[in-house]
Nucleic acid binder design. Structure first.
Length: 269
DNA sequence: CGAGTTTGACCAGCGC
DNA sequence: GCGCTGGTCAAACTCG
């Protein structure tokens, strides 16, 4: 999301001889009015996006502090660890020998680290893992999660612990982007898509003007997780959705409007 | 025709 | 060493 320029740069004061295709029955005044309307809407959307990004950064800092103050979660939450973290890892990278990941369903990476600070830093950068749950329409059987980035599917597998196939995606927006995504339907609720992101994008978010598609909502955890943490993750989801949908979806718009009305982003009940 | 998807084959880690 | 499994590759295919 960083560095996204959503401004359409509609210059209404200059260009006295605009090359506009006039619609039949529409005069210059109508067009200018339309441009003004679009410009103000664009400005409003830009402000909304800025607001969202600010809130996200604030809550991300709060989450960071929370993670520092409470080094691990209660044992009772162990059953919520995603299948990915429970299953065997095919590859033991240079750092895998020194780390174990507890990647829970809240999209929070609570890794246990025994490496040196330097190794820890480079590993974090290389393999940041997060999980997002997205509820879909019951009729929707696809494995696509719209998150603002462009993905290329490179494989699909049926895994042992889940009858639903797992799809493998690479970020295709930037050729050098190392981010990978795995998407699989939840074994408990087939309407829920579990998207696991590995790595960090080395480019900005690809903003697309489109509908929110099959995404109805994000499930960001149970009530046992502190609200601060849940809100932060929901905020992250909202920012992602904002990038993909803007205001074309009325439900999303309503949720967004209610979310940004307060000082923090609140998770819908 | 290029970009993206599908899908069977292959690779490599892990447990026995 | 062998079999199981998850992850990746790449040729064939589809679609705009």
């Amino acid at each position: 999301m960083r560095g996204v320029d959503t401004c359409l740069k509609l210059n209404l004061t200059s260009s006295p001889q605009p090359q506009l295709n006039l619609v039949e029955g529409e005069d210059d005044e109508g067009l200018v009015e339309k441009l003004h309307r679009l410009s103000s809407e664009n400005k409003r959307l830009t402000e909304t996006l800025s607001h969202m990004c600010e809130s996200y950064n604030v809550l991300q800092n709060q989450l960071k502090q929370f993670m520092i103050s409470s080094s691990n979660y209660p044992d009772e939450m162990d059953h919520l660890i995603t299948p990915q973290s429970q299953s065997r890892k095919r590859k033991a990278t240079d750092h895998d020998d020194h780390k174990t990941y507890n990647n829970n369903m809240y999209g929070v990476n609570t890794s246990t680290i025994s490496t040196s600070d330097h190794q820890e830093e480079s590993y974090k950068k290389a393999t940041k893992v997060s999980t997002v749950l997205v509820r879909t329409q019951p009729s929707d059987t696809s494995l696509y999660v719209r998150d603002g980035y462009q993905w290329r599917k490179y494989g699909q597998k049926v895994t042992r612990d889940n009858p639903s196939p797992r799809a493998y995606f690479k970020c295709s927006y930037a050729p050098t982007c190392p981010v990978k995504k795995k998407v699989q339907r939840s074994i408990e609720d087939p309407r829920v898509l579990v998207a696991t992101y590995e790595g960090e994008h080395n480019h900005g978010c690809q903003v697309r003007l489109g509908s929110v598609g099959h995404c109805e909502e994000a499930q960001v955890g149970s009530s046992r997780l502190p609200n601060q943490l849940q809100n932060s993750i929901f905020n992250q989801f909202l920012v992602q959705q904002l990038a993909t949908s803007f205001t074309t979806d009325p439900n999303f718009t309503a949720a967004l409007a209610s979310a940004i009305s307060g000082s923090t982003i609140l998770r819908p009940t």
